[in-house]
């Protein structure tokens, strides 16, 4: 969020500072007459623009290439359709299914996919640190890892379709979260055991809020590795875990 200087006339300035700094929300901004001050309005609009950008831009080819990801796409063909048809963001075409069956490792212990979801910014900000933590951690634990995939216009449940096609034991979906006005960099990791199309959301585990001011990407990576090991041991995910 952009910095705002809260020029107001508080009764207790220290107390106000403490309250304002305890939360990233827009607190104690003051006003001019009955309206917010120009600086507040501008910073709000700037943050809103960043949030829109996170939804509407694409993950760069460079990021995808540097991370060594194979790019595929859902049934969605553009941003407008992505927002209007969540169902199509969960499916892959027969051609894509064939493409991944040909190009990817078959039946890995863990299949990792990265989805742009609702924030390309989140993907750009986190995966360079997160992916190597995952691959190192899985290697150390002796899990085989499938071909790393990037899915454009992907929703959470596309992990079921891809996992089913590749017969993966466990799928980890790293997906950009719907941006708020505080950060557009937040990523979530969804995990499922025994993926198949139509698998209920309740059987998925999630580690959310992965961003520099939340759960740092490297620490999230180590946490995901631990959770995958638990899911592997218990042969279940989400509410199936005890």
């Amino acid at each position: 969020m952009t910095d705002i200087d809260p020029h107001t006339d508080p009764e207790d300035e220290t107390a106000l500072d403490r309250i304002a700094s305890a939360s990233p929300s827009r607190l104690g901004l003051g006003r001019s007459g009955t309206r917010p001050r120009t600086a507040s309005v501008l910073s709000f609009r700037a943050d809103h623009a960043q949030a829109r950008d996170a939804v509407l831009t694409h993950v760069s080819e460079e990021t995808i290439e540097n991370a060594g990801l194979l790019k595929v796409t859902s049934l969605v063909s553009d941003q407008d359709e992505y927002l209007a048809r969540p169902d199509r963001g969960r499916q892959i075409s027969e051609e894509t299914a064939e493409q991944i069956r040909d190009a990817c490792t078959h039946a890995p212990d863990v299949q990792i996919i990265v989805c742009d979801g609702l924030s390309s910014t989140a993907v750009e900000a986190n995966i360079a640190d997160l992916l190597p933590m995952l691959t190192d951690g899985f290697e150390e634990r002796g899990f085989t890892v499938g071909t790393l995939l990037f899915v454009e216009f992907g929703r959470v449940d596309i992990m079921d379709a891809i996992g089913e096609e590749l017969e993966a034991d466990i799928v980890v979906n790293l997906i950009g979260e719907r941006p708020g006005l505080n950060t557009a960099k937040s990523l979530s990791a969804y995990l499922v055991y025994g993926p198949e199309r139509g698998k209920p959301t309740a059987t998925k585990s999630v580690i959310s809020n992965i961003h520099p001011d939340g759960l740092p990407a490297i620490e999230a990576g180590a946490q995901i590795v631990d959770l995958v090991a638990t899911i592997h041991d218990q042969q279940g995910s989400g509410i199936e875990l005890t």
Partner: peptide
Amino acid sequence: NCAKALAQCLRA
């Protein structure tokens, strides 16, 4: 907040 990450790297 990096305990698990550091431990994983060290064990590796």
